[in-house]
């Protein structure tokens, strides 16, 4: 109920600012925006664009977890591996999206691969560093306990290290799921052939500002909904990990 009230206040404030500013090219009114959103809802290309953005986002998420987790794990258990990989990953993290853009356009041109690769490279360091931090924060007293009882190393890795990692993998997914939409939409805008970002790019060319706002609402809704879904899905599983021994 409070959320609905918050949304209502936001819409009223938006309407007031739009009326005061009175420049629909910068800030269209909520009415114009929602009218545009309604029109988008009637068009098949909107659903195709949403589908395209969704699958690219899921693919990026999968790739980031599949590659980031093992690399981060190795960096977490070995200081040498951490020191070897850290400079390269820090560089990848610091490279601006625009530099990746130039590179992927040279290699693949306009298409789905560019946005996927750019998003993957932008989000991979988060996954790697979060996983490494997770492994490094493994409760050393549990490792010590296992050593006293001469538990085999494989079992220690499987039960203690990988077990400690679960909350970090989940929190990586939570962080990435919020960011992946933004990165994918920007990359689509810059070098994509389809998706919400491409529709925003076309709307910009036609100076259709209400449509840009309406597409932004779709992207934001997708981001918030997926974040909430992931939180709900993980909550039950993570209860075990959030409790102390």
């Amino acid at each position: 109920m409070k959320i609905l009230f918050g949304i209502l206040i936001f819409l009223i404030a938006w309407q007031i600012f739009a009326a005061i500013l009175n420049v629909p090219l910068i800030l269209p009114s909520p009415y114009l925006t929602f009218k545009s959103l309604y029109n988008l809802a009637l068009q098949q290309e909107t659903y195709q664009a949403i589908f395209s953005t969704v699958w690219k986002s899921l693919l990026v998420l999968l790739m980031v977890i599949a590659i980031g987790t093992p690399v981060g794990f190795l960096m977490g258990i070995s200081e040498s591996v951490y020191q070897i990989f850290r400079p390269a990953i820090t560089v990848v993290q610091a490279v601006p999206v625009i530099s990746w853009l130039a590179l992927v356009i040279f290699v693949w041109g306009i298409g789905w691969k560019g946005p996927v690769v750019i998003s993957f490279l932008s989000l991979l360091p988060i996954s790697i560093f979060t996983t490494a931090a997770g492994v490094r924060s493994t409760d050393k007293s549990l490792i010590e306990m296992a050593r006293v009882y001469k538990v085999p190393q494989v079992k220690i890795i499987r039960t203690i290290y990988l077990g400690s990692l679960v909350p970090f993998v989940f929190s990586t997914v939570e962080v990435i799921i919020g960011d992946v939409w933004k990165v994918i939409v920007v990359s689509e805008y810059l070098c994509g052939s389809d998706g919400i970002g491409v529709l925003i790019s076309w709307a910009r060319q036609y100076v259709d500002v209400p449509r840009i706002y309406a597409l932004t609402i779709i992207a934001v809704t997708l981001g918030i909904a997926s974040e909430r879904l992931v939180k709900i899905a993980f909550k039950k599983v993570l209860e075990k990990w959030q409790m102390q021994s």
Binding site: S141, L142, E144, M145, A146, V148, Y149, V151, K155, T159, I160, G163, V166, K240, W241, M243, Q244, S245
Partner: peptide
């Protein structure tokens, strides 16, 4: 050797039986 630690040092995400079969 059996070592009873000051704190229980049980692995939080596995149950009692799994904690014991672990060693």
């Amino acid at each position: 050797i059996g070592f009873v630690f000051q704190e229980p040092r049980l692995i939080p995400w596995i149950n009692v039986m799994e904690n014991l079969t672990f060693v």
